[in-house]
């Protein structure tokens, strides 16, 4: 936790959980896609589904997937901005069993055909938790720089990844593994202290049995 999570963020109103938190979840989706989307499917559940109109949650999520920050005044007109950028979006309400009251699922398609699917929750005061990425369970808050390492479940891969992280001078603050099935694909979620350089990410990508690495920088 950071003091500026409590006294902050500086944001466009009216709701830290339903506006600022929503911008942040949207931004994580943008980062995962790594480009501007051309299509977006946004599913709201719980309190998000009940009250999104009044809180501008729809505008906030759209602003986020266009990589806007919580204090960007264009959030007020995010629908118009999205249309002018040629983004086709569809908003719907849904139910997800056992999900946090402020949960959203987002599916994005990018210009170059990239896709990403994620689920996140706004847990109060503008803080968020990402719960799943492309069908894999994760749990990170994007308060630290976070590496998502998609890999094949082969002996020694985790050791190789953590060695490479250590060799780059980073300290691992948190590590999670999601491996739905032995011998198939798995996802490491690695939160690190301090800065992460692009070349560190490239090094990780070059490791055997690593399929892809996404760096989500701290919000």
């Amino acid at each position: 936790m950071d003091i500026f999570d409590i006294i902050g963020p500086v944001m466009i109103g009216p709701s830290s959980s339903h506006t600022a938190g929503a911008v942040r979840i949207g931004r994580i989706a943008y980062k995962l896609l790594n480009e501007l989307p051309i299509r977006a499917e946004i599913g709201l559940c719980g309190s998000f589904a009940q009250t999104y109109k009044g809180h501008g949650t729809d505008k906030a999520l759209l602003a986020g997937i266009m990589n806007m920050h919580t204090d960007d005044i264009r959030i007020r007109n995010a629908q118009e901005v999205a249309k002018s950028m040629g983004i086709q979006y569809h908003l719907y309400t849904t139910q997800i069993k056992g999900a946090h009251p402020n949960t959203v699922e987002i599916y994005l398609v990018g210009k170059s055909g990239n896709e990403c699917r994620m689920q996140g929750a706004s847990v109060g005061g503008g803080n968020i938790e990402i719960r799943s990425v492309n069908g894999m369970e994760v749990e990170f808050k994007a308060q630290q720089n976070t590496l998502l390492v998609l890999h094949r479940d082969v002996k020694g891969t985790i050791a190789a990844v953590s060695n490479s992280v250590a060799a780059s001078g980073m300290n691992i603050g948190n590590f999670q593994l999601c491996r739905p099935k032995k011998g198939h694909e798995g996802l490491m979620t690695i939160e690190v202290d301090g800065d992460v350089k692009e070349e560190d990410v490239i090094k990780l990508k070059s490791l055997p049995n690593v399929i892809n690495v996404v760096l989500v920088r701290a919000l």
Binding site: I6, I7, G8, P9, V10, M11, I12, G13, P14, S15, S16, S17, T19, A20, G56, D71, I73, I75, R76, G124, G125, G126
Partner: peptide, 11 residues
């Protein structure tokens, strides 16, 4: 929809 500091929340 003005610019404020959530402290701790916007509400």
């Amino acid at each position: 929809m003005g610019k404020i500091v959530a402290s701790p929340t916007a509400g």
